[in-house]
């Protein structure tokens, strides 16, 4: 199932659903890269609240996605990693170095506001 992406002011919000396949994840990466350019978005929130597994492939794809979006001049923040998922990730040796995280959508948007206010005049 394709991940729905919403435009919210200067930001894009991608809400990942539970049964995320590798292909869906790669599709989301490509969609976000395209839409950031198209809307000249300042930031992207990837909401993974519904995910019950983040394995090595997902961790790697999220990392490369964050780097790619930064290269396009925008910020990415991942929100909603569940406690069990986070603990499973560290036990497996997976982490997201250099990628911003926040507790939920609200905190994620607040973080983007703080990060982008340095580069952009307030457009919210």
């Amino acid at each position: 199932m394709r991940v729905p992406i919403l435009k919210q002011g200067p930001y894009l919000i991608a809400s990942v659903q539970s049964a995320l396949t590798d292909a869906d994840l790669l599709q989301m990466r490509d969609d976000l890269a395209r839409l950031v350019g198209q809307h000249r978005s300042h930031g992207v929130v990837v909401d993974v609240t519904a995910l019950d597994v983040l394995d090595s492939f997902a961790a790697r794809t999220l990392r490369t996605m964050a780097y790619a979006i930064r290269l396009r001049g925008a910020q990415m923040v991942i929100v909603g990693i569940q406690p069990e998922v986070a603990f499973a990730m560290v036990q497996l040796g997976l982490s997201l170095p250099g990628v911003d995280t926040a507790l939920d959508l609200e905190e994620g948007l607040a973080l983007l506001n703080r990060k982008t206010s340095e580069d952009h005049a307030s457009e919210g």
């Binding site: 569940q82 998922v85 986070a86 603990f87 560290v90 997201l96 995280t101």
Partner: peptide, 12 residues
């Protein structure tokens, strides 16, 4: 250490 890293993944 693992706990701290997991908390960071959650944004704390």
């Amino acid at each position: 250490l693992q706990t701290a890293e997991a908390a960071r993944l959650m944004g704390a």
